[in-house]
Design a protein around this nucleic acid. Structure first.
Lengths: 354, 354
DNA sequence: GATCCAGACTGAATCGATACAGAGAGGTGC
DNA sequence: GCACCTCTCTGTATCGATTCAGTCTGGATC
């Protein structure tokens, strides 16, 4: 069938090792012999060393995995995720490795197999929340990984690249509070494991499921606590799924209440854009003036004139990949905090007089 | 170091084969023994069969490659490419395989190695134009592939999913011609190997480098030939790179000529959006009324009210992956033509009187 | 009691390469 | 002339599993 190293060796009349060297260690044999070998390989249609066999022997694969908590098809609709991937792609490209996209499908058994069977040298963990089992599998396989979101139970020496979620969110909250808003709604995806979409009452921010969301909501709350608005006075709205329609649906009834919020702080740009969609969908005469903020600063945010918190998406991806590909000797250098910035645009303004 | 199958076997006191069967062929051993083996494995911290070794022995890997002509970092900025990837992702996900993103970097040697070394069972070739060598490598490796763009020298039995580029483009051309436009510019990326950006004279459409571009430009030309406007009378504008700024730059001087075009037909939405950018950048009093059409119907096109030709991006990706993962028995079924549709929006209109 | 059989497990061959110790040839230096 | 090197190339062990032809055991069948 397909020719192997041995076949080439037989044709040329040298040992298998020599042919191997012709490909992988050209300095180990004379140029003329090397040429003869490569010529013979070409004649035979030998495509070069089998990648799988090579990986087995060498002990590494030459590609890294990107682990998504969600469906791959979703990942590509999330602009932040796409830009993150672009960053990972840029780094891997430069490093001469490829990236394997590993989705964590619904069925846990399948998902587990996917992580167990991925032929990679390490993982960039995009947003594993309570998928601690996935990290266990990775650890058990002895593979390095970099996480890009805060995790409960994260060990200190774990490689990480991310932002100070709470402080970043606080800056958005402070901006809105500074504009005078006091009746405020916070919007986030999957606040509790199985909570339905819509307003939700929670004893405290500690109960929020995902650390990232917890950090952001906590930051918003911090800013309002400072102006005397407590957690109980904030309206928390749960969304099921990080998408514009889901967010729009979740806030549907929000502005028809007796004392509706004058501002909505969303946990992501996608959610914020959904809120804007919901507002735009109302007839002009019945459209309240609501300040809206997002998080991430995806390209669409600028187009929609959305005030948001910028975090460097591509850089996050790039650094995640680099931490994996060239691990810093210094453990402290393995924990990277990226800068964030409040980007004030037209979607926020003072409280309307009414 | 890391435990292997053999270690587990030794601990339990059975043969290596039996442990292997415990994982891969549960019906080959008693349930009790299987449990004992899995327990021991857990105790030892054995993460399950090594994926690389398994692939080597079994002869397949369980992941497919997606081949990009361009840099990965670029691919993620192209909305059409992203949606295509989403489609591939959806299919692979359902099939329980992963996807390996293989970029074709500038350096041909590196690029070649990337294709040679990719541990995959087949390739979705996203937009290989004159990268025939990449297909040669794939063929030499004996791997199946699906191409998603027309190619010169494509053999008849090759798996393919795409659209009738020429007919689709013709519909856009006919729409614009029907609106009365006769002074028209055609805009495309990399019309000739090393042509500079800007207007370009070409003897005929046959000289266009990439088959996809050739088909689209040919379709535009067909529509105008029908109303008596020959190829010579059309202004062809070359862009270097499929990006908005590049397109904007390429058409910069176009509207300051004596008899400027009243319509621009672009080979992609991204280019068309660039044209709109260029127009928007002019002061209002000096902004000509130009009809613009795109191609693909990416999400941004709707937002920009761009008339365009829709092709199903995700479906293209999904079908490409499916053709690879479950090859149809019937060779004819391996050649899929997707439907396209002209989407008329506000960016096209009748020729202004003046 | 001999025969047959299904079920449970083993052993050796195999997948396609790489690594490393070592062999042989030819050249240098003193 | 002898020890010592360097340059090429070879042979063998090894990476970590899967596969398949058997072996063995115990029970059913006639």
């Amino acid at each position: 069938m397909k020719p192997t190293l041995q076949d080439v060796a037989d044709v040329v009349g040298v040992s298998r090792s020599t042919v191997s060297n012709a490909y992988s260690r050209p300095d180990q044999l004379s140029t003329t012999l090397r040429e003869r070998i490569l010529d013979a390989a070409r004649q035979l249609g030998y495509p070069g060393p089998n990648p799988t066999a090579r990986s087995l022997r060498r002990g590494f694969v030459g590609s890294i995995g990107v682990l998504f908590t969600s469906q791959l098809s979703y990942a590509f609709t999330d602009p932040f995720a796409v830009r993150f991937l672009a960053g990972v792609g840029a780094a891997t490209e430069q490093h001469g490795t490829s990236m394997l996209l590993v989705p964590l499908s619904r069925a846990v058994t399948d998902a587990r197999r996917a992580v167990e069977n991925a032929a990679v040298d390490g993982f960039c963990v995009y947003c594993v929340a309570d998928e601690e089992w996935a990290l266990d599998v990775i650890r058990q396989r002895g593979l390095p990984f970099v996480s890009t979101a805060p995790r409960d139970n994260a060990s200190a020496d774990e490689r990480f690249v991310g932002i100070d979620e709470r402080a970043a969110a606080r800056s958005a909250g402070a901006h809105v509070a500074g504009l005078g808003h006091r009746r405020v709604a916070l919007l986030a995806d999957s606040v509790l494991p199985d909570a339905p979409a819509g307003p939700l009452t929670l004893a405290g921010v500690d109960q929020v499921r995902h650390p990232t969301t917890r950090g952001r909501l906590g930051g918003f709350a911090d800013a309002f606590a400072e102006v005397g608005v407590g957690w109980d006075e904030l309206t928390l709205v749960n969304v099921t799924g990080n998408s514009r329609p889901a967010a729009a649906a979740a806030v549907a009834g929000l502005f028809d209440q007796p004392a509706p919020p004058t501002a909505v702080l969303a946990g992501s740009d996608v959610l914020a854009l959904g809120v804007l969609d919901a507002l735009a969908a109302r007839p002009a005469h019945d459209r309240p003036t609501v300040s809206v903020t997002g998080f991430d600063d995806v390209p669409e945010a600028a187009a929609a004139d959305l005030t948001t918190v910028r975090q460097p998406a591509e850089e996050k991806g790039r650094i995640a990949a680099e931490l994996l590909l060239d691990p810093p000797a210094d453990a402290a250098a393995g924990h990277v905090l990226l800068p964030t910035a409040l980007v004030v645009r037209g979607s926020t303004g003072p409280v309307p007089r009414s």
